[in-house]
Write a protein that binds this DNA or RNA. Structure first.
Lengths: 221, 221
DNA sequence: GGATTAGTTGATCGTGCGATCAACAAGGTA
DNA sequence: TACCTTGTTGATCGCACGATCAACTAATCC
């Protein structure tokens, strides 16, 4: 909670605009992951890097765009991480299984919390609303791209990969949101999504999942 | 946008505590549905009913609890409405179909937006967090209750109605959230949920749905 | 080394928020 | 009608926020 500055020097170290901009963006990302998008404040970011609020304001046209940019940066970085993780998959089906495993893991909680913030805040700040749309489209394009690959490779079928991608993402987001608010009801999140995906893609039950299945009737395949 | 007051009288009409409390609660509900939970402000509520901010503060221990209470009131009222709507259903299966239809309809948007606000704000305000938990439990109890009825009546099977209820609500919330942020991708929301529900409950495909089915492979049942 | 450029500061403005408290006045009651 | 309870007000405090601008100074250039 105390200030991070080591010396109370009057004139702070002078940095190149690029470095300073990156420093500000980094501080904003850290604050967002720790305190949510609402925690990204002019004074908060300034204090974190030991600088005057005026300097942050000097580098950013407005806090709204900083919030939107920060959200976009975090989410797109996560897409990149997941993409890298899936690159090693031997088949599209295996990649889908890994994707579901990844997206529903507890390590995703911080980012899911940001999605909740963005959905709520985005209704009042246009810049964030645009960014939310962009990132949702990016995720959808990513998933539907994988689906198309699988269809092209003859691994499964899907008449409308775009629609299936939206559905899968909707389910994943909903279950993740529930898991964040009330952890424990998470239960076998992955199992349900796997079952839905298998069904929508015409795959045999169990193909996507390695661990426990979802509840009830899905086990009597 | 202009004030609603008709006369600029110095001393406002004096009301009984019960009436005034109800008036404040009602104003808070209207504001929430119009501008979101973040719009429920001391001055905002006061202005809406033509009263001093101090009076609102006098009736409410803190704004946090007013926000939480308002959210709870709106959500529980909706549960009541849906319950009333389902009461006329001839069978549990029919009730489930109606429930899905109801919950995924566009008229639910205002309330879904409040859920998004609550999920986000609830992470910072304890009172709201508690209320979110209560209302989520209420919805889950409502749905799982119906599932148990159906199981008891032999209409379908479900080894763990509680888990199935959570799953259905998770899917519904996720798809609704997506629909709110990006309307149009909604598409055949109902179809997907119906398919999942039928699968989880061991029902024949198409039993729950009267309209169009979901995408791709679900049509070749 | 002096001049110039540009990163940085300090001070300050205006807004909106929640909350508090003494004082006022409306309405029921004796 | 006089009194007294209490709903209501006006004023005000403290806080946090975004934003702006002239002044300062560190780094660079000639």
């Amino acid at each position: 909670m105390s200030t991070v500055q080591s010396e109370p020097r009057p004139g702070a170290r002078r940095k190149s605009p690029a470095d300073r901009a990156a420093e500000i963006a980094g501080a904003a990302r850290e604050i967002a992951l720790a305190d949510g998008l609402a925690g990204i404040t002019l004074r908060g970011v300034a204090a974190r890097i030991g600088v005057t609020p005026a300097l942050v304001s000097h580098y950013q046209p407005s806090m709204d765009v900083l919030v939107a940019d920060t959200f976009g940066a975090i989410v797109s970085a996560e897409i990149g991480e997941v993409a890298e993780e899936l690159a090693a998959s031997p088949s599209t089906v295996a990649a889908l299984g890994t994707l579901i495993d990844s997206l529903l893991g507890p390590e995703r909680s911080p980012v899911t919390a940001l999605w909740l913030d963005a959905w709520s805040l985005g209704r009042r700040t246009p810049a964030l609303a645009v960014e939310v749309g962009v990132q949702m489209d990016a995720w959808q394009a990513f998933v539907s791209g994988h689906l198309r690959s699988g269809v092209a490779a003859g691994e499964f079928t899907a008449a409308d990969p775009d629609a299936v991608a939206w559905q899968l993402l909707g389910i994943i987001d909903g279950l993740n949101a529930h898991a964040i608010v009330r952890y424990g009801h998470a239960g076998s999140l992955r199992g349900l999504v796997r079952t839905v995906a298998e069904h929508e893609l015409g795959l045999a039950a169990g193909v996507l999942g390695s661990t426990t299945r979802t509840s009830t009737n899905s086990s009597l395949n």
